[in-house]
Design a protein around this nucleic acid. Structure first.
Lengths: 66, 66
DNA sequence: TCATAAAGTAAAGTCTATTTTACTTTATGA
DNA sequence: TCATAAAGTAAAATAGACTTTACTTTATGA
């Protein structure tokens, strides 16, 4: 699973801490998700999408072709 | 989190076991997700969306207004 | 009514998401 | 160069997703 968080954050000049704050998660979680270390839960994915006024699909790219 | 799985299943005349099969998850998992007992992981949500040729947002309705 | 398929549910176990604490590395600007 | 902000990372703990096994309840059709 890839994502566009780094770019979306850069467009807004937000730090990972800013993003974590806006999402009410820890900075480590924001970092781990952005780096693709793990996937957010579905509710958190929705929260992220809402924050950026985008759809889940516009932010997260599922690379599983199974 | 609500979802339209029951209807989507009914439209195709699929049992929960059929759905579980198509998703390669257990029947109990299909049942629990459909009943809203818990949310699917993001990868599974994508897999469900792909199965029905819909977006995640067209199937799962996030009711959190926070 | 009876048999059976489908749906619902529950417990125990595994795996992953997320938190907290805390440390290291990398960038940046004075 | 030095101080500091930002990013990266790691370990231990908790919560939630998912499996397997197994049982109960509800629908259905012969």
């Amino acid at each position: 699973m890839k994502n566009r968080l780094k770019v979306l954050r850069a467009e807004r000049d937000w730090t990972q801490a800013d993003l974590a704050n806006a999402l009410a998660v820890s900075r480590q979680t924001a970092n781990a998700i952005e780096k693709g270390k793990f996937d957010p839960s579905l509710p958190l994915a929705f929260k992220i999408a809402r924050l950026f006024n985008l759809t889940v699909e516009e932010i997260f790219i599922d690379d599983e072709q199974t």
